[in-house]
Amino acid sequence: MRGLINYFSGMFNGIISLLKGMGVTGKYFFTSPVTIVTQQYPENRKTLEMFDAFKGEVTMPHDENNEHKCTACSICQINCPNGSIEIVSRDVVNDEGKKRKELDKHLYNIGMCSFCGLCIKTCPSNALAWGQEFEHSMFTRDKFVKTLNNEGSKLMQKKGVE
């Protein structure tokens, strides 16, 4: 007799648990058009805003005079764990006759970057910053190597110094 009771109670509890599950999916079926959180990516490209902190790529901000802050000190290159930064600099002699490094090219290979942020964190002159761009796919690998400083850009002169 107990076996029979167990048989039927087990069956009914099972059916009730199944109905509960169907209730959840059924509820979402009818409320879905409202509750969907999916973003329609290529369509919403214009309105899509990433968070300020988003680590899209490493960039070098330039001001309106096409000047950047990089002093070509190579600390970012040393700190990069993957060797994705290469700084090409040239020695220039300034008016006072002192030898100084000047940035020629800040090469950044995004294909090797692991977005750890050490270059940006350790930069003594805050020359680097995170960019929001995230559509990085390219057809060939050599396009991953980006030159961060603009063509013909110069070092920003610090105010009050010199």
Partner: peptide
């Protein structure tokens, strides 16, 4: 993402504190 900048791989902690 809002705080650390990364969704899956954050690299947020650093010896001595946070990034």
């Amino acid at each position: 993402e809002e705080s650390t900048g990364g969704r899956l791989i954050q690299s947020y902690y650093t010896p001595g504190g946070l990034m």
